[in-house]
Design a protein around this nucleic acid. Structure first.
Length: 484
RNA sequence: GGCGCUGUAGCCAAGCGGUAAGGCAGAGGUCUGCAAAACCUCCAUCCGGCGGUUCGAUUCCGCCCAGCGCCUCCA
């Protein structure tokens, strides 16, 4: 299928927006760096995953078939690069008195549960580093054979100076890179800037594998090269990840792959960070993060998603109480419009209302042109608000059923399918019918009070419900309720 | 020190050469028993500061100020 319109995207490699052209017409291969599973995900992880989820959804929306590969790192991520120490998973395993694989699995499931609540679609493939040791070894062997890597005492390093394009993604020149600042630089490296492909592990290590260089474990960067190439092939389309991974992680991925003779990703996309307290990056090491699980206690997951898509993926997202509350209110407004449409459709008269039909077309066009310009979600959201206002305004009068349905469809398609909002979060929790019935009863008796002008009683009922998060609204058509 | 980014109303946040989207908060109004929701109206002579280019700059260039990111692990 031919895309409806060309999509411009910002390619970090070119430092400019480019028209996206997949290597295979109609299909997109996309790889996004996933988390290292050793602790709970925070809002920053959510920003990355939601950003690329929206990009994926929009590509699908315009007609592409997307293969979306996102890895899980469950080994090889060293606490720091300088020592021979355990990796993060192993360290956590000792801490929690668990097997490393228990740690990895625990946070693996936890991660996907969080992403699920945020409406992030499942990847087409979720490769795990430990499941691809042979592929990583094979790639390292290619690099050694081509003279780009060398082995010393069971460790294998990538020779940075052997790859002339090193630095092309992050815009660094080799000579600018600091040499040997840190004390514990391994002296056995031929060049301090070289990075590990394979690390020797003595028997005390919890996770190790046999290799041509003895027992050990893979370096952090190699997994993404091996797994993306395996599932997407040479010269695949899009590689995404956080801006903080651009160097050295992504630079290393390119070096390892292309030095071995595999053209790597053609478009590189980087999401910016979530910040806190006026610009400070939210990160694990700074300890200034809020886990998603904590946030879910206080806010609807869709509110968080709304907050994230309200800023551009390449911009920072400032996170604090006020934006959070603003997101809650703003999102409720959009939801209110959708709910009102759903209420009105069953009782509306068949027919079209031309004026509103034109607005649907107008705002849909705005939405799509915003999204086609490097996935400008803030403008897309603005288009949704524009349509919302027009609809609400029109709904003060009569609107034909066909038009109501078209409007609802626009919200479901653009806000729902593309931005991933208005997910399935059905009001009423586990048993919506029971809640519905109970509230009918409450509202009936309250209506009785109101007809008799027993305001204190009817207001008491409303206040009581408000305390448990149920809002009653009296309208000309009767009383209605909503959660939160 | 090297590379790079940002600075737009009380808050969040688009725009990036043609005279400031959107949301939240706030003010007034309509509706309502009250409230809520919704709608209508208002809310940046101005986009960190100073110069420059241009008929014209928030948008391009230079300098300055402030904040931030990467160069360790990080989405």
């Amino acid at each position: 299928m031919t895309p409806l319109r060309p999509i411009q995207l910002y390619n970090t490699l070119a430092r400019a927006k480019q028209t996206f052209e997949p290597s295979t017409p109609g299909r997109v291969g996309m790889y996004v760096c996933g988390p290292t599973v050793y602790s709970d995900a925070h809002l920053g992880h959510a920003k990355a995953q939601v950003s690329f989820d929206v990009i994926r959804r929009y590509l699908e929306h315009v007609g592409y078939t997307v293969r979306f590969v996102s890895n899980i790192t469950d080994v090889g991520h060293l606490v720091d690069d300088a020592d021979e120490g355990d990796d993060k998973i192993a360290k956590r395993a000792v801490l929690e008195k668990l097997e490393p694989m228990e740690v990895a699995d625990k946070y693996y499931w936890s991660y996907f549960a969080d992403m699920d609540r945020l409406g992030v679609k499942k990847p087409s493939v979720t490769p795990r580093a430990t499941g691809h040791i042979p592929e990583q070894i094979a790639l390292i062997e290619e690099l050694i054979a081509k003279g780009h890597a060398y082995e010393i005492g069971g460790n294998v390093y990538f020779s940075v100076t052997s790859f002339e394009d090193y630095g092309k993604l992050s815009g660094r020149r080799l000579e600018d890179l600091e040499i040997g600042t840190r004390e514990a630089v391994r002296e056995e490296k031929r060049d301090p800037r070289d990075f590990a492909l394979w690390k020797h592990a003595d028997p005390s290590h919890l996770m190790r594998w046999e290799s041509p260089w003895g027992t050990g474990f893979p370096g952090w960067h190699i997994e993404c090269s091996a797994m993306s190439l395996k599932y997407l092939g040479d010269g695949f389309d899009i590689h995404g990840g956080g801006l903080d991974l651009q160097f050295p992680h992504h630079e290393a991925e390119i070096a390892q792959s292309e030095a071995a003779g595999h053209p790597f990703a053609r478009y590189w996309m980087h999401n910016n960070m979530v910040t806190v307290q006026g610009g400070e990056k939210m990160s694990k090491s700074k300890g200034n993060f809020t886990t998603l699980k904590d946030l879910f206690e206080r806010f609807d997951a869709m509110t968080l998603r709304f907050l994230l898509v309200s800023s551009h993926y390449r911009s920072i997202t400032e996170f604090s109480e006020e934006p959070l509350k603003a997101a809650h209110s703003g999102y409720s407004r959009l939801r209110g419009t959708v709910a009102e449409l759903e209420r009105r459709i069953p009782e509306a008269q068949t027919g079209k209302t031309e004026a509103l039909e034109r607005q649907i077309t107008h705002y849909s066009e705005l939405f799509e042109s915003a999204m086609s310009d490097d996935f400008n979600t803030p403008e897309a959201v603005a288009a949704l608000f524009g349509l919302s206002k027009e609809v609400n305004s029109a709904l003060t009068g009569e609107v034909g059923k066909d038009t109501l349905e078209n409007t609802l469809k626009a919200f479901h398609t653009l806000g729902g399918n593309v931005l991933g909002l208005f997910g399935d979060s059905k009001a009423g929790g586990q048993n919506p019918e029971m809640l519905d019935t109970l509230l009918e009863l409450v509202m009936d008796s309250r209506t009785h009070y109101r007809l008799n002008k027993q305001w204190s009683k009817s207001d008491a009922l409303r206040d009581q419900l408000q305390k448990v998060g149920i809002t009653l609204e009296d309208t000309a058509q009767g009383t209605r309720w909503k959660l939160e």
